[in-house]
């Protein structure tokens, strides 16, 4: 397995990646509290972007409603903790199952009935909106008044109930991000990964070659949904409050997909680079504006929009592919004559 993980990764790339990891592990000792929260946000988007990338980047199925799975994971774990005091680690399988099931139902309906492309994207938004309004009217999970995760022992790090300091949350999300990168690498190099890429490039051709496109698209949706709901659990316990208006909104879904699109669709490092770029720049902008003394809600989002516009227009494959070339990590130039 380790051989598959590192096979034909340029040594320089591996070294750079390990250096980055070492820097991230050491970061909480070096940075202040504010920067730590920014780093948590970056890693959160890197993780969630990686999960979304399975569906769109690998298998070519555009989901614009991934906030749905974040929300499902968040609400499952938070509601069970709130009502029964269940640890998020116990709720975890249930949260994954709920999200996977919802993803499966949506995939089943869409792929069986031939809903594809733009229609599929709109279906994903519609289901997320449906969930938003549904949760707004579901009083067991707080309805539109919100669900609040109790914050009893904030002074003490408790990994079992995920109650603790930002530093603990930082290491949790860092571990998740590393795990997601490894899982995605293995997936991409597996049979399913190659089938997904075939489907992404030309679905009819893939089917003609005997790929069960329905089954593999289903795998992508279910996996992506389940992985995304894990981000949701983190979200719930890190922020301690959940409002349907904020959790399921289309804005959240868009925020989530900016990283992989700006970083580079279908690449493994793209979602991470994208998350660093977009969140880092947005926070820097926010900070700079505070310094000048203007605090306008919406300015950050205008910035997101402009970034997205510029990247989609100027760098259709995202930032990472050209950056990779710049770093001399291109598989074509650094490979050892392997086809």
């Amino acid at each position: 397995m380790i051989a598959t993980l590192v096979a034909d990764v340029p040594r320089r790339g591996l070294v750079l990646l390990l250096l980055l990891l070492a820097a991230l592990v050491a970061a909480p000792l070096l940075v202040n509290d504010y920067l730590l929260t920014v780093l948590i946000l970056i890693l959160y988007f890197a993780y969630a972007g990686q999960a979304w990338n399975i569906m769109m980047g690998f298998a070519g199925q555009l989901s614009l409603g991934h906030a749905l799975y974040v929300g499902l994971g968040a609400y499952t774990a938070a509601a069970l903790f709130f009502h029964f005091g269940l640890s998020p680690w116990i709720s975890l399988p249930l949260a994954l199952a709920v999200s996977g099931l919802v993803g499966a139902i949506m995939g089943l309906l869409a792929f069986r009935f031939g809903v594809a492309g733009v229609y599929f994207a709109i279906l994903t938004i519609a289901v997320a909106e449906f969930a938003r309004i549904g949760f707004d009217h579901w009083s067991w999970v707080g309805g539109s008044a919100g669900l609040f995760v109790p914050v009893a022992n904030y002074t003490q790090n408790d990994l079992w109930t995920l109650r603790g300091s930002p530093r603990m949350f930082y290491y949790v999300i860092l571990a998740l991000t590393v795990l997601a990168l490894l899982v995605c690498r293995l997936l991409l190099k597996s049979r399913a990964g190659y089938y997904w890429q075939a489907i992404r490039e030309d679905e009819d051709a893939a089917r003609a070659l005997g790929v069960n496109t329905f089954r593999y698209k289903m795998y992508a949706v279910v996996l992506s949904a389940a992985m995304t709901s894990l981000a949701g659990i983190f979200f719930a316990f890190y922020y301690n409050n959940l409002f349907p208006e904020q959790v399921f909104t289309i804005g959240r879904s868009i925020e989530l997909i900016l990283g992989p699109i700006i970083g580079g669709l279908g690449t493994l490092i793209g979602p991470i680079v994208g998350a660093f770029l977009i969140t880092g720049l947005a926070e820097a902008l926010h900070e700079a504006m505070l310094r000048i003394g203007i605090d306008v809600p919406g300015a950050k989002q205008v910035f997101y929009g402009v970034c997205l516009l510029v990247v989609v227009m100027a760098l259709p494959h995202g930032v990472w592919p050209p950056l990779r070339r710049l770093l001399g990590l291109d598989p074509k130039t650094s490979g050892k004559g392997k086809a």
Partner: peptide, 18 residues
């Protein structure tokens, strides 16, 4: 298709926040 879609998503984000 998704590239065009994202382009207009960007326009939408800019418009709504302005």
């Amino acid at each position: 298709e998704h590239s065009q879609f994202m382009l207009l998503v960007a326009v939408a984000i800019i418009l709504v926040n302005i």
